[in-house]
Design a protein around this nucleic acid. Structure first.
Lengths: 211, 211
DNA sequence: CGATGCGCTGACTATTTGGTCAGCTTTTAT
DNA sequence: ATAAAAGCTGACCAAATAGTCAGCGCATCG
């Protein structure tokens, strides 16, 4: 079990949440082996022993963080209704992905960090779910191509391009802030990105709405 | 100085290189604070004290690794000759970026890891060079748009999309191998990706060569 | 009111970690 | 042949680290 067995109380749940949020910041910045339990405690504003009171260890705490991260990733693997219009589907998916990146930058970065470092802490189930989702979407895209609804494109490459481009504002936030000469990326920045990316994806698929 | 001052010898240079390659593997997998000097020594096949003989410390070794990584990044920030044809420029840049990702996956991952974690170990100079390069390219792209050579597009978003999509095979290698059900990504995979991405980028810019 | 369980935490332990050093061997230069 | 420098490394050190524990206070339940 990822944390210590005990009756669920309001205080306990609240404290666990504070610790998990602190852990998110520390794990995203330093990774699993680089993170320090003392720093997590400092960020959470509690003694280190208190962190160990709620979580049986560093791995258990990281598992709790990953559970949240994977939940965000799973929510973004949304189903697409059969027969839906490609333009609407792609527009919706790109916007939804950008919005998730904006709402959950820490989760986006921790997930990316996990993948970058080999994904050894991710469960086989998330790997299987992602593979299945991607295969199903790829088949759907193949269907659109065969029906002449969109231009020929490698479905997997399209999905990978959408993933990488919609997550980059979180993953390379420091670099993008530097290039934009900004202290932070605003909601407007994300909205402009979403607008931009939907147009780009539509052009890739030959769904140019402006010409 | 990043390493110990000493006469450069063939043996010394060779040994430093072996240690740096080992360090690359360890730093990409665990980041700066998560990496262990003993594991670097193990990978390099030398005693830990030998690593310290050649590098004055962990930070010095990481700096040496980053010097290589930044060199790769800088090489990819290639100049584009004035007045060049957009289609040729974009085609060349996308292919060059994919090829760099294939040739230097470790460097790609370490750079991405640095950005993901805030880039605090990167020098201000690389930040400035990247910002300047991006601004210059953005201006060039603006020129193409104004001359009607390409469709209107946010130049920064286009550059970011090219960066993220061309680097993703290295950054999310584990996930992509899982989706493809493969043990490794081949040169062919990279070539197909390059072909795919150049077509996609051209379509974004309205440079469709197949219609 | 007393028993039980939750919550807390400073002090502590065992292990890990980056880094050092003395003494040795090998190589290079004179 | 000799001196100097490079190269090497097992043993060691001090600090850092994850994790534990005993003892306490508070809240809840019967």
């Amino acid at each position: 079990m990822s944390s210590v067995s005990r009756k669920v109380t309001a205080l306990g749940a609240k404290k666990r949440d504070v610790i998990i949020r602190a852990a998110e910041q520390e794990f995203e910045k330093h990774g699993f082996s680089g993170a320090r339990m003392q720093r997590i405690a400092d960020i959470a504003g509690v003694p280190k022993a208190n962190v160990h009171y709620y979580f049986s260890g560093k791995q258990a705490l990281y598992d709790a963080v990953l559970t949240k991260v994977v939940d965000v990733w799973n929510q973004a693997l949304s189903p697409i209704s059969p027969g839906a219009d490609p333009e609407q589907v792609l527009d919706q998916y790109v916007r939804m992905k950008v919005e998730f990146t904006r709402l959950y930058p820490e989760a986006t970065r921790i997930f990316a960090l996990e993948l970058l470092q080999g994904g050894q802490h991710l469960s086989a189930s998330i790997e299987n779910e992602t593979r299945k989702w991607t295969r199903d979407r790829a088949r759907e895209i193949e269907g659109w191509i065969q029906q002449g609804k969109i231009l020929p494109v490698d479905p997997y490459h399209l999905i990978f391009l959408i993933w990488s481009s919609t997550q980059q504002f979180a993953e390379s936030e420091t670099q993008i802030k530097s290039i934009y000469r900004r202290k932070r990326l605003s909601k407007k920045d994300y909205e402009l990105l979403a607008d931009s990316l939907t147009v780009m994806v539509k052009r890739i698929c030959g769904l140019n709405t402006e010409r």
